[in-house]
């Protein structure tokens, strides 16, 4: 589903002394089938933004369009259920939403609410459990007896079992060990490709944004600071640093390489192997010159 934000402003607790403008005049477009990373310093409005994607928040001004759904002050659909079944959101620390007696029941909770037949739900549970890297033996255990990482996976499985078209991830790997982080991100990437999803990824990790995203949107204090492909965005080191963001290690490395050896390797989102080969090439040329 295509997603469009048109001059969206969102104000928390409007008409009180606590009114707070979390998003201001934000416009962008997400193409169906792409992965978009949303990056920004803490408090820049990322979580607020993604709550517009399944109608949890309706823009104070402006309009959000998700597929054929339209959300604005003039147009507030009463029933958001269908939209929510098509846009799956994995919140920051999703393990806080677990509540059922067993893991199986908790995963089934979402699909049940959206009216998926029991037999189909059983099938889906069988599919999602290995997909998130759990074994079937956890199905009958209480979610509260699991480790933090396992709980996170159960919560993610609960969202995937709804089979959404759009997957929205708010820092899905925060607080996990490095290996778990990689496993989960790789899992989302695989699902994205297998099921033709549109994925919106909020992340603090420049490495993930570089590795997985087709486009990057950078927020600063509720407004759009920059937008473009990873190559375009990460080649602007100074601009990023002005909003307290780093560039990925790879880009840092290339910059340092240029400083030290006076040889420029243009950044085009190459893999480590490709870069290694290019460096080898340069060294060879340098040796030949001598």
């Amino acid at each position: 589903m295509d997603i469009t934000f048109e001059n969206v402003t969102y104000i928390y607790q409007q008409n009180t002394p606590f009114a707070h403008k979390a998003i201001q005049d934000l416009s962008f477009h997400i193409e169906s089938g792409s992965i978009v990373a949303i990056i920004g310093h803490t408090g820049s409005g990322k979580s607020t933004l993604i709550q517009h994607l399944n109608g949890l928040s309706v823009p104070t001004e402006g309009e959000v369009r998700i597929g054929e759904y339209r959300l604005s002050q003039e147009h507030k659909p009463k029933d958001m259920k269908e939209l929510r079944s098509r846009v799956g959101v994995v919140f920051q620390y999703p393990e806080h939403q677990l509540f059922e007696e067993t893991v199986a029941k908790d995963i089934a909770f979402g699909p049940q609410n959206f009216g998926v037949p029991e037999a189909v739900i059983k099938e889906r549970i069988k599919d999602v459990i290995p997909a998130v890297g759990l074994s079937e033996s956890v199905l009958e255990r209480s979610p509260f007896d699991l480790s933090g990482g396992q709980m996170r996976r159960v919560a993610i499985a609960g969202v995937l079992a709804v089979k959404p078209d759009v997957l929205v991830l708010d820092e899905p790997t925060a607080g996990l060990d490095p290996r778990g982080q990689k496993e989960i991100m790789d899992m989302f990437y695989r699902l994205h490709n297998e099921q033709d999803l549109t994925t919106v990824l909020v992340t603090h990790s420049m490495e993930d944004a570089l590795k997985y995203a087709d486009r990057i949107l950078i927020l600063n204090k509720g407004t759009k600071f920059m937008e473009g492909t990873p190559e375009e965005v990460f080649s602007q080191k100074e601009a990023l640093q002005s909003v307290q963001l780093d560039v990925p290690e790879m880009v840092q490395f290339l910059n340092r390489f240029e400083e030290k050896f006076g040889q420029q390797i243009p950044f085009r989102n190459q893999s480590v192997e490709e870069i290694a080969q290019m460096i080898q090439q340069i060294i060879k040329e340098l040796n030949q010159d001598e």
């Binding site: 709550q51 259920k81 079944s85 959101v89 919140f91 609410n113």
Partner: peptide, 9 residues
């Protein structure tokens, strides 16, 4: 909000 996203009304 999280439960509403999972279809609770």
């Amino acid at each position: 909000r999280a439960q509403a996203s999972r279809g609770v009304d």
